[in-house]
């Protein structure tokens, strides 16, 4: 359940930014979570729901931009979509690939209320 650690980091970072902006509360948080990031979306959502209680993010709307996986073959440089970490290159069939998208774990933006 590392999703709760992730959720608490999200809240920490969001509150830090909200405080800096002298905001009263966070009304919306937009996340970017790669489908190959190793984070279960449902578990993260559950963890966030529990963890935002009594924080500036309490009641904030959560928007998640799911980033699909994209790999590059290190042998033939072909780029192709992947939904796991062990799909071979469709051109040269090699497994020597790099994941170039889909491992994101980012906070994109916040909407905050201020006076």
């Amino acid at each position: 359940m590392h999703e709760l650690s992730i959720a608490l980091e999200i809240i920490d970072i969001a509150e830090e930014h909200a405080h800096k902006a002298h905001a009263l509360s966070v009304t919306e948080i937009e996340l970017e979570i790669g489908e190959l990031s190793g984070v279960e979306m449902e578990a993260l959502d559950f963890a966030l729901e529990v963890a935002v209680k009594d924080t500036m993010l309490s009641g904030a709307k959560r928007t998640v931009d799911k980033v699909p996986g994209q790999a590059r073959c290190n042998d033939c440089m072909h780029e192709f979509p992947v939904d796991d970490l062990f799909t071979p290159c469709p051109v040269c069939h090699g497994f020597n690939t790099s994941i170039i998208r889909g491992q994101e774990l980012r906070i994109k933006s916040l909407f905050v209320n201020e006076i």
Binding site: I6, E9, I10, D12, I13, A14, H17, A18, A21, A23, L24, T27, L31, L105, R106, I107, K108, S109, L110, F111, V112, N113, E114, I115
Partner: peptide, 17 residues
């Protein structure tokens, strides 16, 4: 009197670790 404002964060969640 409350105004909504967007803050662009663009930060990796695992930055601290």
């Amino acid at each position: 009197h409350l105004q909504s404002k967007e803050i662009i964060v663009g930060q990796d969640i695992l930055t601290r670790n």
